[in-house]
């Protein structure tokens, strides 16, 4: 299943990348693959902006606006309750 195309804020700085492969390990949607010591974004539209790659990149080569893709949370945020997602009451029924 894929969500909307051309919307993710994911960006990778090839110059900084040291090819450690952490992004490939932590990504739950196989967005990255490491070839010849450099990471590549191979499936950009699969990115859900969870932020795992950026958090675990030791050289800060990955940037993105991470957050939870949750309409209920965003609505609650708009009305000043609990911020975007995973508030005290709603969201994350998982």
């Amino acid at each position: 299943m894929k969500y909307l195309s051309n919307v993710t804020t994911l960006a990778l700085d090839k110059e900084k990348c040291i090819g450690c492969g952490m992004c490939e390990i932590v990504c739950p949607h196989a967005v990255f693959s490491v070839v010849d010591g450099k990471a590549f974004i191979t499936d950009r539209d699969a990115c859900m902006e969870c932020g795992a790659c950026a958090r675990n990149c030791p050289v800060e080569a990955i940037t993105l606006d991470s957050g939870v893709g949750c309409a209920t949370g965003l609505i609650n945020g708009m009305f000043g309750g609990g911020g975007a997602c995973c508030g005290e009451k709603t969201c994350c029924s998982k």
């Binding site: 991470s66 939870v68 893709g69 949750c70 029924s93």
Partner: peptide, 11 residues
Amino acid sequence: GCTTFTSQSGV
């Protein structure tokens, strides 16, 4: 919000 694949920018 319940899914495992929607991004915040997309929502």
